[in-house]
């Protein structure tokens, strides 16, 4: 079976600095791949390459078996590849309702009422806030809105970047519960995260990215054991979640 999302020897650079040095990864349809790694490992770049926002300088990006190097990000988005960027993936000055409307470009377009209905069904809390500017909601609610917006358009592939950033553990747990529910609907998910514990419970496979290379890949249980070496470099674990990326 052809993987739905595949990277073959992908390289990418920022100006004159190469940050991905030949990354090979593959995700089958309906699977969840967790990409873990410390600050500056190139995780965000990896997702941006997948979403078409950052042209790879080498290697191949394959989506559904077709080469997608340098594809237009707008086309990819409209065909159901959805990236929720790190930080808050919402438009702060637009109302919740308008944020949701932004998804209605999909060919299988839903009406606005349907979009709102689905979003509220998934995240009831949004229902009370439809007329509120998204920027005035709490961080967790904003991430819910971002997720909801990604979901109502029924993406084929969902790319999640640091969903947990700046959020309290309870909120993160709640969000990952949603991610698990989404995964159950056969959405292919690539999730980038430093917050290993939560994401490993959701993932089917996991990969550790260190300094632009895949340092380890395999079932989550195997990966969990190798993490502290990659992250902490021997520092005591308690003082250290390699907080925040860029």
């Amino acid at each position: 079976m052809t993987p739905l999302v595949e990277l073959r020897g992908v390289r990418a650079r920022h100006g004159r600095v190469e940050v991905l040095h030949g990354v090979d990864l593959a995700v089958d349809a309906g699977q969840v791949l967790a990409v873990l790694g410390p600050n500056g490992a190139g995780k965000t770049t990896l997702l941006r390459v997948l979403a078409g926002l950052h042209p790879p300088s080498g290697g191949e990006v394959l989506l559904g078996g077709r080469r997608a190097n340098g594809a237009d990000p707008v086309d990819l988005a409209r065909r159901g590849l959805c990236l929720i960027p790190e930080g808050r993936g919402v438009f702060p000055s637009l109302t919740v309702r308008e944020n949701l409307w932004m998804t209605t470009h999909r060919p299988a377009g839903l009406s606005r009422a349907e979009v709102e209905e689905r979003a509220v069904a998934r995240f009831p809390r949004l229902g009370q806030r439809l007329r509120q500017p998204a920027g005035t909601m709490s961080g967790g609610e904003q991430q819910m809105l971002a997720l909801a917006r990604a979901l109502v358009c029924e993406p084929a592939v969902l790319l999640l970047d640091e969903l947990s950033m700046g959020l309290a553990p309870l909120v993160v747990a709640e969000l990952y519960a949603s991610v698990r529910a989404i995964a159950a609907d056969d959405v292919t998910i690539v999730v980038v995260e430093q917050f290993a514990a939560a994401v490993l419970e959701v993932a089917d496979t996991a990969a550790v990215l260190v300094e632009g290379r895949v340092a380890a890949a395999g079932p989550p249980a195997d990966i969990a054991g190798q993490l502290s070496g990659a992250y902490l470099g021997g520092a005591p674990p308690a003082d250290h979640r390699p907080a925040g990326t860029t």
Partner: peptide, 12 residues
């Protein structure tokens, strides 16, 4: 106006 690259990601 809010976030140009996020707008692209939403297919705008």
């Amino acid at each position: 106006v809010d976030d140009p690259s996020l707008a692209i990601l939403n297919g705008a």
